[in-house]
C-alpha cells in the first residue's frame, strides 16, 4: 500500500511539480470560491475563466509574447471589462443576471475563438491544453506563475478578510461603515481571473471552474462560520487533489478530470451525510417523528 503511494514520486519530477501546482491552484480557487458561493456569484467564475481566453490572445497580439505577466495582464484587463459589462447589464431591471453572464461571456469567448483560428493561427497556443490542462506536464513557466500568484492571492484575502466577509454578507451595511464594496468586488473578480489563468496549464479553463465552485458548495453544507467554511473548502479540495492524482496515475486518465470527479463525489457525500443539511439525517429525523406520532 505504502509502496503504491510512494512509487509515483520516484518516477520523475513531474509528480511533485504536478502535486505542488494543482494543490496551490486548488487551494486559492477554493478560498475564492467560498466568497463567490456566498455572494451567489459562482457562475461569474465560469464567465471569467472563459473570458480569459480572448484576454490572453489580445495580450499576445499586442505584445507578441506569451510570458506569464503578459498573459495575466491581458486576462485581467479583459476580465474586468467583462465583469463590468455583466454588472452593468444585470443592473438594468429588464435583464436577468444569469442572462447577462451568459450573453457577455459567450460573446467574449467567441471573439477569442475567432482570433485564435485566424489572426494568431501561427502562435503556439495549445487550445486543448488551455481548455483541459496537463497536470502531469507542468512547465517551469506555469510553476513559476502559480508560485507567484497563489501566495499573493491568499495573503490579500487574509488582509481584507473582514471587508470581504462583511461586504459578502450585507453589502449595504458594508457601504455604510465605509468598506469599499466596489473595490472588494472587482478585487475578487481580479483574483478569480488571475487564479484561473494560473491554473489553465495545470487543470484547464473548464475544470478550474469546478475547483472554484465545488469546494465552497460542499463546505457550506458543513460549516456555520466563515472561518470553518474556508477550512472545509480547503480540506475538500486537498483530498480531491490527492485522491484524484493517484486515480489519474494508476488509471492512466486525465488528472484534472479525476480530481473534479472525486470532488463531486465528496460533495454528494456531504449532501447526504452533513449533520445539519444532510438528506439522510433529514429523512431519518422525519421517519422518527412520524413513528413517535404514530405510537402516541
Amino acid at each position: 500500500m505504502i509502496q503504491w503511494l510512494v512509487d509515483p514520486w520516484t518516477w520523475g519530477d513531474w509528480m511533485w511539480r504536478g502535486m505542488v501546482t494543482v494543490h496551490l491552484v486548488a487551494i486559492a480557487a477554493a478560498v475564492l470560491g467560498v466568497f463567490l458561493y456566498l455572494r451567489r456569484m459562482s457562475l461569474i467564475a465560469d464567465a471569467l475563466a472563459h473570458v480569459a481566453l480572448p484576454g490572453i490572445v489580445a495580450a499576445f497580439l499586442i505584445s507578441g509574447s506569451l510570458d506569464g505577466p503578459v498573459m495575466l495582464g491581458g486576462a485581467v484587463v479583459v476580465g474586468l471589462v467583462a465583469a463590468w459589462a455583466i454588472q452593468t447589464l444585470s443592473n438594468r431591471p429588464t435583464i436577468k443576471g444569469d442572462a447577462a453572464i451568459g450573453i457577455v461571456f459567450t460573446s467574449f469567448f467567441a471573439v477569442g475563438v475567432i482570433l485564435l483560428s485566424t489572426v494568431v493561427r501561427d502562435a503556439h497556443i495549445d487550445t486543448h491544453c488551455l481548455l483541459f490542462g496537463d497536470v502531469l506536464g507542468i512547465s517551469d513557466r506555469a510553476l513559476g506563475l502559480v508560485l507567484f500568484v497563489v501566495p499573493t492571492v491568499l495573503v490579500l484575502v487574509a488582509i481584507f478578510f473582514r471587508w470581504l466577509a462583511v461586504s459578502s454578507f450585507d453589502p449595504k451595511f458594508a457601504m455604510a461603515i465605509g468598506v469599499p464594496v466596489g473595490a472588494m468586488n472587482y478585487g475578487l473578480m481580479t483574483a478569480v481571473t488571475v487564479t484561473a489563468v494560473a491554473g489553465f496549464e495545470a487543470v484547464g479553463a473548464i475544470l478550474v471552474i469546478a475547483l472554484i465552485i465545488v469546494p465552497g458548495a460542499t463546505a457550506h453544507l458543513l460549516a456555520d462560520r466563515l472561518g470553518s467554511m474556508i477550512g472545509w473548502a480547503v480540506a475538500h479540495t486537498v483530498v480531491s487533489c490527492w485522491v484524484g492524482m493517484y486515480v489519474a496515475i494508476y488509471a492512466n486518465t486525465s488528472a484534472a478530470g479525476a480530481i473534479v470527479v472525486v470532488g463531486g463525489v465528496l460533495y454528494l457525500a456531504a449532501f447526504l451525510l452533513s449533520p445539519r443539511h444532510g438528506r439522510l439525517w433529514m429523512a431519518r429525523r422525519s421517519l422518527l417523528r412520524s413513528r413517535t406520532s404514530v405510537s402516541h
Binding site: 456566498l38 456555520d224 466563515l226
Partner: peptide, 20 residues
C-alpha cells in the same frame, strides 16, 4: 435583506458593528 444561510453567528454579526 441578508442571506440567513450565511455561515456567521449572532455574535459575528454584532462584531461587524465595530469593524470601522
Amino acid at each position: 435583506a441578508v442571506d440567513w444561510d450565511f455561515p456567521i453567528t449572532a455574535e459575528g454579526v454584532v462584531r461587524q458593528g465595530r469593524f470601522r
